[in-house]
């Protein structure tokens, strides 16, 4: 404990066992955390961002159609300003495109967003892909 008095606060000489228990518990956590980050530091390879995009849903909205998707970055490096372009393909030809920029797609994490098209794709294929990014 800490004694607060007119002079400087000073720690007692015979602390309660709970203080030591907390201290040891904290030390274990800190060492565990350092160990985790340390292992990451040693084994982690530096992979450039790699994206996987999955369409998660779509619905009609006023004046168009919304296609929702997730973008996952499987690599160990974060990508910034990720530009994702979506196209509606009619027999292999793009008839409409839309674009969205993600501020960040963190390493081994995912972000989600949506494309807004003016027409419902219906039977036509929707292709969404990342076209570029910058390093944070």
């Amino acid at each position: 404990m800490t004694e607060i008095s007119r002079k400087q606060p000073s720690e007692t000489e015979d602390p309660h066992w709970i203080e030591w228990a907390t201290g040891i518990f904290s030390a274990v956590l800190v060492v565990g955390m350092i160990g985790w980050v340390g292992v990451e530091a040693i084994v982690e390879e530096d992979q450039p961002p790699e994206f996987g995009i999955a369409i998660t849903g779509g619905n009609a909205i006023a004046g168009g159609y919304r296609v929702e998707f997730d973008i996952a970055n499987r690599a160990t490096r974060t990508a910034a300003a990720v530009v994702v372009r979506g196209e509606i393909l009619d027999q292999g030809k793009a008839v409409e495109d839309a674009e969205v920029t993600f501020d960040y797609v963190p390493a081994q994490s995912k972000s989600s967003g949506a494309m807004l098209f003016s027409a419902e794709p219906g039977q036509r294929e929707v292709r969404i892909r990342a076209v570029g990014y910058s390093d944070p």
Binding site: Q8, P9, S10, E11, P15, W20, G23, S26, V30
Partner: peptide
């Protein structure tokens, strides 16, 4: 002002374990 004093015969790591490390865990 307000700096904490350690009793003279207490090694520095006593306070380190009892206050600093738990404090860091609290901050985390």
């Amino acid at each position: 002002k307000g700096t904490h004093e350690l009793p003279e015969d207490t090694p520095w790591w006593h306070a380190f374990f009892r206050f600093t490390l738990p404090g860091y865990i609290v901050a985390m």
